[in-house]
Design a protein around this nucleic acid. Structure first.
Length: 586
RNA sequence: GCCCUCGUAGCUCAGCAGGAUAGAGCAACCGCCUCCUAAGCGGUAGGUCACACGUUCGAAUCGUGUCGAGGGCGCCA
């Protein structure tokens, strides 16, 4: 509908340009928006005010000229000039009832748009290191990324969902060593577990698995393990050197095979736990991209070569640096360390390049707000590779702070005192968690009220929307009990009977659904859909209270049932895009 | 110190690409079940859009500055 009107207006503008009223070089982009109130019609355009200056005539006069040249349309009732020069567009009834019929005909397929263009786009989210279970901080990125991908897909983008598995590097080594130490403990050895290691109980679980498969095969005494290592934190060291030395010692004592057993058992275990956790959260991926695969291919070297060819690398103090400061970053960055190993940043660059080479026009990254230092860095890298930095899109998701009994829930990763995503799901339900995470703009801090999310009252927006859907289903169940039938054909013919304010409001709101998907996708803002669904539920509840649907008159009854059936379809579809279920009974 | 994000009603937040009288929900107050689920509905009250200047026919929205909040600034991953 909106597209149609935009088309009509641009026709008129072209006409005006041809007639010489508007200069040939005017930007004819049509701006059209929903009005705030029906007294201004459905849509309004500020075209006349924007173009008044180039046209050299007063806005209201120009508006008149524009309206005169708009082609006829069966959807449009009339256009009026209002205020300083707004063009208010009033639609024919059939424009609204037509959309209603579309919804009923297409059912769950309604809302699948084709506006995303042909380009493929990859959306990466979560990508948490597989060193422990997901916690509530990852939850928001998961909910946001998953909802965004679904919405963009509905808007017609060709979306691939991707998770970058950071299965290489020091953190993984630390993990493997921690498992080994816990294993030694289980074997009955006395160990000195590092304060800065992974201390969660899940480490014991993994150690237990190794022991079940391999017994005490890799048992060593405390002296063998710790002899000659640098000081721990407790002993006054910084702890990092201790960990590195411990990793070295583990590799020596365990040998490559033994070390890999600990490493891989930890990785496989945690990764499958993460996958299961996300699946239960309704969050899915098309590709789990392994960092090790990236390293084993020559992708990193390939990316570094590209930077070198483009003249962005130099050597200093034995390391190879990327001259990022020339490309918008604050400072230069190391890509190859003095010891010859490439940096994590080099992998990031390679991964980005890899995405483009796999045929994606745009790579969208959903990062936690703590990664915002990456934005300038990665954009500089994109430029350095000779690519358009706009092909890289980084969306930062702000932190969520949990509240229980009106108080902030304390969390600290260091002590292992963090709430896991799984615990959150079990406490408030997946539906509530998914909705709460995305109901605020992603660039806004989120206060997550656990008590509210659990509550089964009207204060809880999830239940409010689900309840609207359940009420609709309930009406249809009662219909059967009353031995009446719903006849959609009769209802469609009788749609013109729906003239009450509540009915008009509901129809108008239904007609906004596709626009909402389009803007939520374009603005990367699933919260717009969350708000939209809430407003649609409000309209339904108001209608429900004001009017009886199951009335004697067959035409009116079927027309009303068609209206609420269409509302239900939109609610179910919309909730589905947010990963929230639509229960038929509550 | 530098950089990023943010500042809208008592609280939590919308406000899409600058547009008409700044909107929801919660909390407060007043009402509504002989009727399809009251997990609902209707109404009242509540704002100098942090502040200042600028751009514009028009600014919560754009720009600059000030104040305030949170976060980020490693040859860590």
């Amino acid at each position: 509908m909106k597209e149609h009107l935009e088309e009509l207006l641009s026709q008129s503008l072209l006409h005006l340009q041809r007639d010489g009223v508007l200069p040939g070089d005017t930007d004819l982009k049509v701006q059209l928006e929903r009005t705030r109130s029906p007294e201004y019609g459905e849509f309004a355009s500020n075209l006349a005010m924007v173009l008044a200056k180039p046209a050299g005539m007063p806005p209201r006069k120009l508006a008149e000229a524009i309206i005169e040249r708009v082609p006829m349309s069966r959807q449009v009732d009339r256009m009026e000039i209002a205020g300083p020069g707004f063009i208010n567009i009033f639609l024919q009834r059939c424009a609204l009832t037509g959309i209603l019929k579309d919804v009923l005909r297409q059912g769950d397929k309604f809302g699948q748009l084709r506006r995303g263009g042909r380009n493929r786009i990859t959306v990466e989210y979560v990508s948490a290191n597989p060193t422990g279970p997901l916690h509530v901080g990852h939850g928001r990125g998961a909910a946001y990324g998953a909802s965004l991908a679904s919405i963009m897909s509905a808007a017609g983008y060709k979306v691939q969902r991707e998770y970058y598995v950071n299965d290489n590097g020091r953190q993984m080594d630390i993990l493997a060593v921690c498992v080994w130490l816990r294993y030694l403990e289980l074997c009955g050895e006395n160990t000195n577990f590092p304060e800065n290691g992974y201390r969660g109980d899940y480490i014991y679980d993994i150690a237990r698995l190794v022991r079940i498969d391999h017994g005490d095969k890799w048992r060593f005494t405390r002296l063998e393990v710790e002899d000659g290592l640098p000081p721990t934190i407790a002993e006054g060291g910084d702890g990092e050197a201790y960990l590195d030395a411990l990793i070295q010692r583990a590799k020596e004592l365990l040998g490559e095979t033994g070390y890999l057993v600990f490493f891989n058992t930890a990785l496989d275990n945690i990764l499958s736990d993460i996958k299961e956790d996300l699946a239960e959260f309704g969050v899915h991926f098309d590709k789990w991209f392994s960092e090790r695969d990236l390293e084993e291919s020559d992708a990193v070297q390939h990316a570094i070569d590209r930077l070198r060819e483009n003249g962005h690398l130099y050597e200093k103090e034995g390391a190879v640096w990327f001259r990022a400061s020339d490309l918008g970053d604050e400072k230069d960055r190391v890509v190859i360390r003095e010891n010859g190993r490439t940096t994590y940043f080099a992998s990031d660059i390679a991964y980005f390049l890899n995405k483009l080479e796999r045929g994606f026009q745009t790579a969208v990254y959903v990062f936690g707000a703590d990664h915002h230092g990456y934005v300038a860095r990665l954009r500089a890298a994109a430029r350095g590779l000779g690519e358009d930095p706009d092909r890289l899109e980084i969306l930062l998701v702000q932190f969520a702070v949990l509240f229980r009994f009106g108080e902030k829930v304390a969390m600290s990763t260091r002590s292992g005192q963090f709430i896991t995503l799984r615990e959150l799901r079990e406490e408030v339900s997946t539906d509530a968690a998914r909705f709460f995470y995305v109901m605020r703009s992603h660039d806004q801090h989120l206060d997550f009220d656990l008590d509210l999310a659990k509550s089964r009252t009207n204060e809880n927006p999830v239940f409010y929307i689900q309840y609207a859907y359940a009420r609709i289903c309930s009406v249809f169940r009662n219909l059967e009990d009353m031995d009446q039938r719903h006849n959609g054909e009769i209802g469609n013919v009788a749609l013109d009977l729906l003239t009450e304010d509540h009915e008009m409001q509901l129809m108008r709101n239904i007609s906004r659904f596709t626009e909402t998907i389009e803007s939520a996708a374009r603005l990367r803002s699933p919260h717009l859909l969350a708000h939209y669904l809430h407003s649609l539920a409000t309209d339904l509840h108001s209608y429900y209270n004001a009017h009886q649907f199951l009335v004697k008159d067959e035409n009116m009854r079927n027309a009303r049932l068609n209206l609420i059936l269409a509302t239900g379809i939109i609610l179910r579809k919309g909730l589905g895009l947010l990963g929230v279920s639509a229960p038929e009974e509550m």
